[in-house]
Computed example of a mutant assay.
Amino acid sequence: MYEELGYKVFNLGSSGQSPIQTEVLLNRYLDKLNPKLIIYEVSPKVFASDGIESATDIIANGELDYYSFDMAINLMHLKILNTLIFRIYSEVFYKKTQIPLSIDEPKRTYIKGGFVQVDLKEYNPLKRIGNWRKKEMNKKQVEAFENIVTMAKNREIKLSLVQVPFTKEEYLQYDNQSFNEFISKYGSYYDFNQIELLTDKKYFRDNLHLNTEGVLVFNKQIIKQFKLADEQIKY
Score class of each variant (00 low, 15 high):
Q221T: 05
K168D: 11
K121E: 15
E146C: 09
R128L: 14
F86T: 11
A72K: 06
S43L: 05
K140T: 11
L30E: 06
I129Q: 08
Y66L: 11
T167R: 07
T56S: 07
D175R: 08
K107L: 14
D175F: 08
L81Q: 10
Q117A: 13
N61W: 02
V215E: 15
L120W: 12
F166Q: 07
I233Q: 02
N138Y: 07
E143S: 12
Y174I: 04
G214L: 06
K45F: 13
H209R: 04
T199Y: 09
N27H: 11
N176G: 07
L78G: 09
Q225N: 06
L84D: 00
T150Y: 08
S18N: 06
I59G: 00
S90T: 04
I183N: 02
K8M: 04
P165I: 07
L81R: 01
K95S: 07
N82T: 04
Q177G: 07
L216C: 05
Y67T: 10
S68I: 06
K79R: 15
R108A: 13
V142E: 09
N61Q: 15
A72F: 05
P100L: 04
Y40T: 03
T150S: 14
L159P: 11
S43C: 11
L81W: 09
I222L: 15
F192G: 01
E169Y: 02
E196L: 06
P100R: 03
R87C: 05
F204V: 08
D70M: 09
V116T: 12
T109E: 13
D191C: 08
Y123C: 04
I59N: 01
L33N: 05
Y67R: 05
V42D: 02
E105P: 01
R108P: 05
K96Q: 09
I85Y: 10
